[in-house]
Amino acid sequence: MKLRALARLAPVLVGALLGTGCVTATVDEMVFNEPLEGVGDAGVVILGRRHASDYETEPDFIECIGKHIQRGDSSINVIGELEFLNALYPWFEPRTAPLRPADIDRLMAQPPVAEKLATLQTEYLVWVDGSTVQTNSAGSMTCGVGPGGAGCFGFGTWGNDSTYEATIWDFTNRAEVGRLNTSASGQSYMPAVVVPIPIIAPVQGTACDGLGDQLLKFLSSEH
């Protein structure tokens, strides 16, 4: 009887916590040469930096930014990361990818690279560097099986921090034309009254929205 009563109480506790964790976010923008008419018929590719040994920029985060931009302006041609990497292999592998805008000249001097960039109509390249990490955790939880059934009891919490930087390269002018920074942090919860129910703070999604909005402002003709 007590087990069933606690089970009925669980949704109430979840509702009291509003269903999601708390998130705070900031976005810093430093644009040097904003296009006046958007991308037009050209394309933009968004790539994640994966040169560090202790982390990589998550592919799903890169995909999230691309979808966010296309939802905001369907006229923007966002070239898929995997499609671009396969077409330009091995020039954008971690060991060979350009690290500075000055490296664009070296790339364009390679006829196969210049030809493929022209075929894909790539005008802008957005490098995204960063990751989402878990920062702390606390609480405890126990699970067991009794005469009335199985259940878990306890409470856990953990934090996540997202920090990303987007650097925009212009292949036409062979220069860096903009830089954006976004950070988000949040606290997630796991209350357990018979059934553990995670209440996740959408930290990475918030960072994606913040960075996507600023890139959309830069790239879109719908100002």
Rank of each mutant, 00 (worst) to 15 (best):
D129S: 12
S140L: 09
K116R: 13
Q121S: 15
L117P: 01
L107Q: 10
V126D: 02
M108H: 10
S131W: 07
N160G: 08
S162W: 03
T157F: 01
P112L: 10
T132E: 09
M141N: 14
F155V: 00
T132Q: 11
W158P: 03
L117N: 03
F153I: 01
Q134R: 10
T142F: 04
V145K: 08
Q134E: 09
S162F: 02
C143P: 10
T135H: 02
G151Q: 10
M141D: 05
A109L: 13
S137A: 13
L125M: 10
D161T: 11
S140I: 03
F155E: 00
V113S: 06
Y124S: 03
A118L: 06
D161W: 06
M108G: 11
F153D: 04
G130H: 04
V128A: 10
V128K: 01
Q134Y: 05
V145P: 04
E115K: 12
G146V: 01
Y124H: 14
P147C: 06
C143S: 15
T163K: 10
G151P: 13
W127A: 09
N160W: 05
G151D: 06
A109E: 12
V133P: 02
Y124T: 02
T163W: 08
D129E: 14
E123G: 14
L125S: 02
G139H: 00
G159V: 10
Y164Q: 05
A138N: 02
V128E: 00
D129P: 04
S131R: 09
G159W: 03
A150S: 15
T142D: 12
Q121F: 06
W127G: 09
P111W: 12
P111L: 09
G148S: 15
L125C: 04
S131V: 12
E123Q: 15
A138K: 04
D129F: 05
G144S: 11
Q110N: 13
W127D: 03
G144H: 02
Q134S: 11
W158A: 02
A114N: 11
T122P: 04
S162C: 11
R106L: 08
V126L: 06
V133Y: 06
A138F: 05
N160A: 14
P111I: 10
L120V: 07
N160M: 14
Q110F: 08
S137P: 05
A150R: 14
S140R: 09
